[in-house]
């Protein structure tokens, strides 16, 4: 499986995602440079975390207009798999590949801690290895992860079942104190209607090896790799 990890100036989780795909899952991975509008045959494209172009305007705003994003958009429109993590999720919303926007955390501070996520949809390529209702533990590390959209759009997201992950208490129940950044409807991760574009604020790549004390995130990459392989097999 050919995987591509986009490198914007300021990306800082690019090596971490590369490590999981290459060394934990044994896939073919290459870095995709921000100012080249080419994916070099990547079947799974990952937009990693970081501060793309310094994020001095809004998280992801400048990256959304970069040359590589043109190619990512075409890939997504053809049904190809695109995963945005943290800043990558911000880039996807700024590029309108996913709905909504990510605003500064409710507490106005950067938050680095473990959160609990409930899998709302297990029928996307990214969540297929999980069970619906399963509770995952995953680290977050962001200052702007507070998901926001117009109320009627939020209703539509729910109706169309685009919400894939929600912040919950360890027992899986919705609880305001565990919605640590104040996201609308406790949204932590979203898919598009086709399920092939997926964004989340937590960092699955930081919990993909037992040596780090948590491997809840590995199945997300494993599912994506398998999903991309199936798409490729289907002769898309």
């Amino acid at each position: 499986m050919r995987c591509g990890v986009v490198v914007f100036p300021g990306s800082n989780c690019d090596h971490d995602v590369y490590h999981v795909l290459k060394h934990v899952l044994d896939q073919e991975v290459r870095f995709l440079w921000h100012d080249e509008p080419r994916l070099h045959g990547s079947e799974l494209v990952v937009l990693p975390g970081g501060w793309s172009y310094g994020d001095y305007l809004r998280g992801g705003a400048l990256a959304a207009l970069s040359p590589v994003m043109g190619a990512v958009r075409e890939h997504a429109e053809r049904g190809g798999l695109v995963l945005g993590i943290c800043n990558g999720f911000q880039v996807l919303t700024e590029a309108k590949l996913l709905p909504g926007a990510l605003r500064p955390n409710r507490g106005q501070r950067f938050e680095c801690r473990d959160v609990y996520l409930r899998v709302e949809r297990a029928d996307t390529p990214f969540t297929r290895e999980y069970a619906a209702g399963q509770v995952l533990r995953m680290p977050i590390a962001h200052g702007e992860g507070n998901y926001e959209h117009f109320p009627y759009e939020l209703d539509r997201l729910e109706r169309d079942r685009l919400v894939a992950l929600r912040y919950v208490a360890p027992d899986g129940a919705l609880a305001d104190e565990w919605n640590v950044n104040g996201s609308a409807r406790a949204i932590a991760g979203l898919a598009n209607a086709g399920g092939n574009v997926f964004g989340l604020m937590p960092h699955p790549e930081r919990c993909a090896e037992e040596v780090l004390g948590n491997s809840d995130g590995l199945a997300l990459f494993a599912g994506a790799v398998r999903g991309a392989a199936q798409l490729a097999g289907a002769g898309r």
Partner: peptide
């Protein structure tokens, strides 16, 4: 204090 610092990036923090 330390929750405001990213202490898990680089996936090496045991």
């Amino acid at each position: 204090v330390w929750r405001q610092y990213d202490h898990t990036v680089r996936t090496s923090t045991v």
